[in-house]
Design a protein around this nucleic acid. Structure first.
Lengths: 180, 180
DNA sequence: CTCAACATGTAACTCGTTACATGATTGG
DNA sequence: CCAATCATGTAACGAGTTACATGTTGAG
């Protein structure tokens, strides 16, 4: 019943290939960044714990000069733990807080132009995100051979659909406030 | 640069009408529940602080027998603080974590049926939510006179659009995994 | 009588970020 | 030489939930 998912993120990414903590951090940004993030303060302690629990092992510890690079790999025990977690039901409603929607909801207390600006900024942000997603989608299309491909493209598509819905909503909402 | 938004939620809701802490909690669930939540551990201390800061006042403290009911109202200072916050830019990217998408992304490590089940549960949940939203939308349609109406209906519509996009994605993804 | 809803509050806890410390390597 | 990126880690803080304590009121 641990709520912290950091360990599973690490285990999951290490099924792709052995990596260092630094690599994991970067890879999070490049792959699951649109619905997940981890900070160093979570990541590095989790790596140490996973080694203690024998779910991952430190394969190589390179020292070129004094620069360290720790290469971690998932163990069979780790794969087991990951699979167990993948089969578990998600628990509890965790409401996604959205400060902008909160401000919009209280829009009566601000000038319409303030709220319009709020929405225009959201629109711009979402647009940029959508463009990024579409670019990544193109790159992904060249990697159809990977066994990960289907799952990666589906999770990306989720971001795309959301962004499109959000964009449409922003545009309609801006119009509605300008009229009303 | 406070990150805690609880105070603004309280201020915002008190612009509708004076309320008790209990009322605020309930109202959160009934209005902004699809993108916001507050726990008692945040709410009650925040109310006390807001009184200290003169942003709200305790209008009535009813004691029928020993049952207490505190009725709070927003002050002019409170309205000012709210308006200031409404005009401020949102800061920092807070990535919305989504455990189900995380599991999907790591789908290669599970059986397709496990992942399909995951998505079917999501689909069911989203469907129920969408139905709720559509019901609320009908109720809202009867309150067109309120100055809040436009903003409330737009924030609700955001939930509806998202849910629809999510639903479509769930259905397509389930099909894609079943085929692939 | 009992259960659910009303009503307020607090202590302990976990989660997660921020900001820092430390140092190496590489490209302009 | 300097900035960016590589690379690992920790301490302190703040946000937020959970679980509890306490008691009332009204419906069945």
């Amino acid at each position: 019943m641990t709520k912290q998912k950091t360990k599973f993120v690490i285990l999951g990414l290490l099924t792709i290939e052995p990596m260092s903590g630094y690599d994991i951090k970067k890879m999070i940004g490049e792959t699951i960044g649109h619905f997940w993030s981890e900070s160093n303060g979570q990541l590095y302690p989790a790596l140490i714990q996973l080694v203690n629990d024998r779910l991952i092992v430190l394969e190589e510890k390179q020292k070129k000069g004094k620069k360290e690079s720790h290469l971690y790999a998932i163990t069979d025990l780790g794969r087991e733990a990951l699979e167990t977690w993948l089969g578990e039901d998600i628990e509890g409603k965790n409401i996604q807080r959205d400060e902008e929607l909160l401000k919009l909801f209280f829009g009566k207390n601000a000038s319409p132009s303030t709220t319009v600006q709020l929405l225009q900024k959201r629109e711009k942000r979402v647009k940029e995100k959508l463009d990024q997603f579409l670019l990544i989608q193109k790159e992904l299309a060249t990697l159809t051979t990977s066994p990960h491909h289907l799952y990666w493209s589906l999770s990306l598509k989720n971001g795309i659909y959301r962004a499109q819905a959000e964009l449409r909503w922003c545009q309609e909402s801006i119009q509605a406030i300008k009229k009303g």
